[in-house]
Amino acid sequence: MLDDRARMEAAKKEKVEQILAEFQLQEEDLKKVMRRMQKEMDRGLRLETHEEASVKMLPTYVRSTPEGSEVGDFLSLDLGGTNFRVMLVKVGEGEEGQWSVKTKHQMYSIPEDAMTGTAEMLFDYISECISDFLDKHQMKHKKLPLGFTFSFPVRHEDIDKGILLNWTKGFKASGAEGNNVVGLLRDAIKRRGDFEMDVVAMVNDTVATMISCYYEDHQCEVGMIVGTGCNACYMEEMQNVELVEGDEGRMCVNTEWGAFGDSGELDEFLLEYDRLVDESSANPGQQLYEKLIGGKYMGELVRLVLLRLVDENLLFHGEASEQLRTRGAFETRFVSQVESDTGDRKQIYNILSTLGLRPSTTDCDIVRRACESVSTRAAHMCSAGLAGVINRMRESRSEDVMRITVGVDGSVYKLHPSFKERFHASVRRLTPSCEITFIESEEGSGRGAALVSAVACKKACMLGQ
């Protein structure tokens, strides 16, 4: 009897593995994704193909990295998701002549009506938060230079001027797309009239992360975010950046690689679950690469896999709870928690219980395998993109072996128990001629924006502006 049951459990697990095998990517698959990513990057950089390229390769006008001589107080704003952060950054000489960066910050959550109302409502709310922060720190009387981390696709015309191309991540505030974001912020500050600010720089969160990590390690020339969304930036040779005049030196390019796949480059790798996630998203047909990796989508992918296993009578005796059938019910943090389970399955059992399920031991094991399959594919897909960037940098610099540091931020990278190990191992397999160091950014977005502002202020002083 026991043997029969054991055989049935083994057969069930084997069927589960057959279904989950769809998520496995072979090294040849990853090399294919990497080569296609490089081709799209090239198209994004070139003037004649930029418009139709899915990977936009947006110039950021960040050319210099901090040298350690900029000092002063800077205000930093960070808008990239449902939370908005205001930070005071003091850049100065530390002990023994070292450079020191001290920060104080406060988080504000953005109400739904500000995210989806008008641009005026959104930026009025942001300036209200700045006003509140300055009151708390008794700094209303000071006109501070301000660095703005704005983590949406922007076409820069200068370091302090950028046109919002399109909202992502659930934002829909009308009247912002096609307009200068810094102008919208300046107008809102003017409307309030109770404080003055000098907006000197606007950067993407990947750029802010790279600059913040450069402060720790001067070989950091790539910034990457794996959180709600997924994106990367890197220092490109100016001669390859056709959208900006000049051939000397390097400029940081914001790849906006989340949109890779929007022209069909990933079609052969998309599964039924991916198509369902895409169809029910706020932007169907867009940001397809990001939807395979980002935390906004990972939990939902797992939920759809679990429903398939229920329908195949391989999980929960073929019956799903009402909660499990509800879109968004299986949160991405559950994926991390399930994979963090120590082996007694308590954590998995508790999560499934909150979803109205009474799982068996085998159910718990199957749910864990589903989570591992989805998150491992995410790590491997992400590795193909980064390997594409790094191999490109090595080739354009004609280096036999390139040493490089990548600064990384984002909740999936930082909080998932195995993502970074799987990701690092896969990147290294795909970049055999590179020695890569990964560092995690601390308060990256805010500190990085302030350091970019410090560079901009120093330049302005040198130019006598």
Rank of each mutant, 00 (worst) to 15 (best):
P145L: 12
R192Q: 00
E177P: 05
D262L: 12
R155G: 02
I225F: 03
M210H: 06
C129Q: 04
V374Q: 06
D73Y: 15
V89H: 02
D4C: 12
I404A: 07
E248Y: 11
A387F: 00
G94D: 09
L164G: 03
V182Y: 04
C461A: 11
D135K: 07
G385V: 02
K102H: 01
R191P: 00
E93P: 15
E67Y: 12
Y289S: 04
A259D: 02
E157W: 05
R155E: 01
S375R: 06
I225W: 06
G92Y: 07
G388F: 04
A201Y: 00
R63M: 12
M235P: 12
F438H: 05
V101C: 12
L324M: 13
E51S: 14
A208C: 05
L146H: 03
E339I: 11
K31N: 08
F74M: 06
A119D: 02
L75D: 05
H156S: 03
P153Y: 01
L58P: 03
T326Y: 15
R5P: 09
R250P: 14
N83R: 10
Q286L: 11
D135P: 04
F148G: 01
K161F: 05
G285V: 06
V389G: 04
C220K: 00
R397V: 06
R428D: 13
A329M: 09
R85V: 02
R422P: 05
V408N: 04
N240R: 07
R403G: 12
D4G: 09
K291S: 05
S54R: 09
V408D: 00
S64L: 15
T149M: 00
D341W: 06
L415S: 07
I110H: 05
V253L: 09
M402N: 12
K90S: 15
A320F: 14
E442C: 15
V86C: 02
L243E: 13
C220Q: 04
D73R: 10
G44H: 06
K39S: 07
T362Y: 09
S263F: 09
K104D: 14
I293A: 04
K346A: 15
M251S: 06
V455A: 14
L30R: 09
K136G: 05
G356A: 07
K459D: 15
S383W: 00
A384Y: 04
V86F: 06
T405S: 15
S453F: 00
E395M: 09
S76L: 03
V207C: 12
E9I: 09
D73P: 08
V244R: 00
K32S: 12
M121K: 05
R7E: 04
H317R: 12
F423R: 04
L355I: 12
N231R: 04
T342F: 09
R192M: 03
Q24A: 10
V89Q: 03
F123K: 00
E312F: 14
G294E: 01
E236W: 00
F74A: 11
R186I: 01
G170I: 02
L144A: 05
F148R: 03
A320Y: 09
K143N: 09
W99T: 15
T405F: 12
L185T: 01
K142R: 13
V55N: 06
G147W: 01
E440F: 11
A384I: 03
D365G: 08
R392Q: 07
F330A: 09
A379M: 07
G175P: 02
I225Y: 05
S411L: 03
S109I: 06
M402Y: 11
F123P: 00
D365E: 12
C220N: 08
C371W: 00
L324Q: 05
G407L: 04
S340A: 13
L306R: 05
D341H: 12
A384K: 02
M210C: 09
D113Y: 13
Q18G: 08
L47P: 06
L266I: 15
D262A: 13
T168W: 01
G299K: 09
V389T: 08
M402F: 12
K90V: 13
T82Y: 00
L415K: 05
G147D: 05
L25Y: 08
K420S: 11
D205N: 05
C434T: 08
V89P: 00
R303A: 05
A6P: 09
R368E: 10
E290Y: 00
H156D: 01
V86D: 06
Y234K: 00
R36P: 00
D160I: 00
C233E: 02
Q18K: 14
T118G: 04
D78Q: 01
K31P: 06
D78F: 01
D158F: 00
A188S: 09
D205S: 03
M462S: 12
K172W: 01
L386M: 05
Y297D: 14
K12D: 12
H218M: 14
N350R: 13
R303T: 04
T342R: 11
P111F: 05
F316C: 11
I225T: 03
H380I: 09
C461M: 14
R308F: 12
Q26K: 11
G249L: 06
L88F: 07
A370E: 00
T332I: 03
V406P: 03
G328L: 11
D278F: 04
I163R: 01
G170Q: 01
S100H: 08
S426H: 14
L270D: 01
L266D: 02
L2Q: 11
R428Y: 10
M121H: 07
D29R: 12
M107C: 06
K420V: 05
H105I: 02
T354R: 09
W99I: 15
K31W: 12
S336N: 09
T332L: 01
V455R: 15
A450H: 01
G193R: 03
T60S: 08
L415G: 07
K143P: 04
H50K: 03
K15Q: 03
V367D: 06
R377S: 04
F133D: 00
K13T: 10
E221Y: 13
K458D: 15
I348D: 08
A201Q: 04
I436P: 08
T354P: 14
N350G: 08
G407R: 07
R422D: 08
L30Y: 12
E9N: 09
G97K: 07
V207M: 03
D4K: 11
T332E: 01
Q239S: 12
R447F: 15
D217K: 15
V62A: 04
Y289G: 04
R7A: 11
M139H: 12
S445L: 03
D205G: 00
D135S: 07
L355C: 07
